[in-house]
Amino acid sequence: MNGDFLALLPRPNLAVSGMERTAASTPRLEGTTVFAFHCADGVLVAGDHRATAGNVVFSDTTEKILELDAHSLMAIAGSPSVALEMARTLQTSFEFYRRSQLQPMSLAAKLRALSRLLRENLPGTLQGFGAVAPLFAGVDAADGKPSIYFYDPLGAQFEAAAYAGSGSGSSSVKSVLHYLEKWGPHPATMALPDAVNLANRLLMTAAEFDAATGGVDPAQKDFATLKLLNRDGIRSFTRNEQAQFWQEARP
């Protein structure tokens, strides 16, 4: 017993996950925007709600920021069938390890677990239908600091010093965040209401230049999926909370 959930799966002859699937999945999240940046209260992870299949809007209620456990978030961009299965596998693996070993899995091991799933998805990535390029945000149990990581579709992992983004609309977001990092105001020192408003404005900007990114409509209280991660865990922001921040920021 070493707490490895994936090693347990072959016993009852269960497939490891959706990674062996060969059928092409219809909706694709390449047309998407997810991003994460450091703010004064932790790491804020944001995403839009849109899934597209070619030029068809497949869904406008897709959850792309997924809670893997009490201290880990995964933002998905890429093939949703594979990405969601990866998230489900990681959720079970992390909780299985924590419960069976009576201690949480280390952040390094969590990062490697996602790397391993991405590597095992190599056939899907090469065939062009199952590529996933996720973001990962996790808290190091030793020092309680939240960190942001991004991956390439083959499983290489990189730590982002200040921010990271993935999906077709992320280049606009990363450009703005780069500007702010260089010339201010710095997101890393922003209070929570300002950081939440910044995330929604960034998503509006991404939607302006990327048709596949679902935007923000404050009049309809339609905001980004937003989750804050820090040593205390994960906090999700409701539509009403975001609407209140938005209203308070109006000049």
């Binding site: 959930f5 347990l8 009852p12 269960l14 596998t89 079970t92 419960r99």
Partner: peptide
């Protein structure tokens, strides 16, 4: 405990 955890997680995953 280990038996129960394994059975529960396999069922929850499957």
């Amino acid at each position: 405990r280990q038996t129960a955890i394994e059975a529960a997680h396999l069922e929850g995953f499957t």
